[in-house]
Amino acid sequence: MTYYSLVFWLFALITVGSAFIVVMSKNLIYSVFSLLLTFFGVAGLYVLLSADFIAIVQLIVYVGGILIVLIFGVMLTGSVLTEGLKTNVTNMLLGSVATGALAGLLILLFTNNNLYPNTQVLTPVPLKDISRLFIVDYLVLFELLGVLLLAALIGAASIGRKEKV
């Protein structure tokens, strides 16, 4: 159990620290690459929560897909070539007041509430059961998701191309 706590705190530190770098870094490239660390940290937390399937999907979709698309976005908008690589921070006072209030609310909610159980962690669910849920119980949702992805990708290609539609 102590090893579990140790690994949890390690991943929590990685996640929160790199999330702060994502938001606070003046350099866009540093932000993108610390987002990579954040995604890795969250994937590690998923493994600790015995959600192996979700951890793998996190690595494939976020690290393999979304992050690469983000780096393409940084490169294609010419932020590396121009001085736009350095971005400034504004609204610091109002932003910190608003988010401080939000953080206080969330922590109050999470610590003051005993609606949740603190029992043992779920044992790892076999992939067979998860895929049965996808194919049998939530089939319509799954298919709709496929249609949504197709429409989104066609729309992205249509918006992003050079000539006028």
Binding site: S31, S79, F110
Partner: peptide, 26 residues
């Protein structure tokens, strides 16, 4: 609770980013 507070911190960090940064990619 640990996981919930951790995700609360992550969420608040994201809100800070949306409110204080001016670059659309950030």
């Amino acid at each position: 609770e640990h996981y919930l507070i951790l995700s609360g911190f992550m969420f608040v960090t994201g809100v800070v980013g949306v409110l204080t940064r001016r670059n659309a990619i950030v």
